[in-house]
Amino acid sequence: MAHEEHADIPNRIRAKEVFHPGTLIAAIIVAVLAAMMLHGLVRNKNFQWHIVWLYLRDVKVIQGIGYTLLLTALAMILGTILALIMAIMRTASNPVLRGVSWAYIFVFRGIPVYTQLIFWGLVAVLYPVIGIGIPFGPQFVDFDTSKLIGAFAAAVIGLGLNEGAYLAEIIRSGLESVDGGQGEAAKALGMKPSLIMRRITIPQAMRVIIPPLGNETIGMLKTTSLVLAVPFTLDLQFATNAIANRIYAPIPLLIVAAFWYLVMTSVLMVGQHYLERYYGRGFTNSGSKRSKRQAAVNAAGTTTIDPALEVEQ
């Protein structure tokens, strides 16, 4: 932990650092290579930067961004809910619950997303009518599948089911990372299992779950570019591709897509950072918050002994 203000120590050492010529040379080489790449990017006429600039703000492109974000959000919400259920079922004592959870993860993790998306696009062909009733018994309500599950819904279901299988393992390991003594202490206070899960276990598991969940969200944002398999045609990838085919300019529109995907992932990464900080509260072994609080305690001068000495690492 760095101290901001320095104590007044006499004869403080003024060190001359060791010179590393290798590092300097490597830095120069890397800088030159980077400059060359940038030059090639900007000066190459084939990139057609004026088209890039024109279509960056195209209505179809902006709408594509909206759909991509919406698909990402809905698929992650569906995936997280499914994963939480599967993770809890996985630890259940009932073999039926455990078996179903295992089978779900096995199937949806083992088949490529692209294949699954095609399947969800065709589900109306497979099951023209969906009904609610008793298996092998009477049906109570019937729905026309193609009306119930449109392309957008098929895309969300396909992405969400696939994501749920990955998140289930992440959430399970997160729940398992919480010390067993936590649940016992909560039980001893008279808390019921559902309350313990909600108030004690999940908030602590989040600290472990959030980093991979963030990575999965960023992954999902990029995976939405596969929804043409359904086919769903309004996302960013499809929108830019459609424009490219119309005006015979594939490369500038690839750049438009790449630019916007980068912007979106950057925003998500910032959000992930703040979530990690929130769920990391109370676990401040590193990070500035704790040192600030400690500094405040010291500065207040209300404690006779240095509290830092009391803090267990």
Binding site: E184, A185, K187, A188, G190
Partner: peptide, 26 residues
């Protein structure tokens, strides 16, 4: 039932060797 057991536990306080405080709460 779990609910009845929880109600019985609420009338008994327990202190553990390893404290088991909830780390995400003050």
């Amino acid at each position: 039932t779990e609910k009845q057991i929880a109600a019985q536990r609420a009338r008994v306080g327990m202190v553990f060797q390893r404290f088991n405080l909830f780390p995400h709460m003050t």
